[in-house]
């Protein structure tokens, strides 16, 4: 455990290079709850793209539903993102931004077998046509509500799973159990950096 992005996070469970190689060939699960998460509700705010959209490598925006967005940011971009949104909040008649960083745990599920793992946990369509890269879906995952955000790392399929913090341990266990047959391993922030940052 080490301080990373201002949070106490696991660096690695086994050598990071080994973890990264394993994720590239099978699947892995990493806790990325340190992400800043901002909930944006209201009509009238139209971000540049309606689908998941990475702005400058530190902030991404995901449309969840009519009048509902999720903005994710790396801590260094978090303050800026919040300020920008608060400015919009003041200008628009009915827009509200809530910092939900503590409300959600974010888990990064990555690797060529990640979709197989996901298919065991959700009845939603997570195929390439059902959930293309940069696509967002909210669906039941291991019997709880989750936002599933697809954010491939280059050619490597990857999904961000956002679940409420109080069920996160339960979901972590469920994903690990479901992933057993596909060789899923937990990995730390060090290997996650190897795979490409993403937001």
């Amino acid at each position: 455990m080490e301080t990373y992005q201002g949070w106490e996070m696991p660096r690695e469970f086994r050598p990071a290079a080994e973890e990264a190689a394993h994720v590239r060939s099978a699947a892995g699960l990493c806790d990325v709850s340190w992400l800043v998460k901002l909930d944006v509700k209201g009509r009238g705010w139209t971000p540049a793209s309606s689908a998941g959209h990475t702005l400058d490598g530190t902030v991404s925006r995901w449309r969840l539903a009519a009048g509902h967005w999720l903005v994710l940011a790396r801590p260094e971009g978090g303050a800026g993102a919040l300020e920008g949104l608060q400015a919009a909040e003041r200008q628009l008649p009915c827009l509200h931004v809530t910092d939900v960083t503590s409300v959600y745990c974010a888990l990064l599920l990555a690797g060529p077998r990640s979709r197989d793992v996901l298919e065991k946990l959700t009845s939603a369509d997570v195929s390439d046509s059902g959930l293309p890269n940069q696509g967002a879906a909210q669906a039941g995952l291991a019997h709880v509500h989750a936002a599933i955000l697809r954010e491939d790392r280059g050619p490597l399929p990857a999904y961000l799973l956002l679940v409420r913090r109080d069920v996160a341990e339960s979901v972590w266990d469920a994903v690990n159990e479901a992933g057993g047959e596909y060789g899923l391993i937990p990995f730390g922030f060090s290997a996650a950096e190897h795979l490409g940052a993403g937001v």
Binding site: L64, A65, A66, H68, A124, Q138, A139, H145
Partner: peptide, 8 residues
Amino acid sequence: YHRMGCRQ
């Protein structure tokens, strides 16, 4: 109500 999805 879409309780497991958009929650609307």
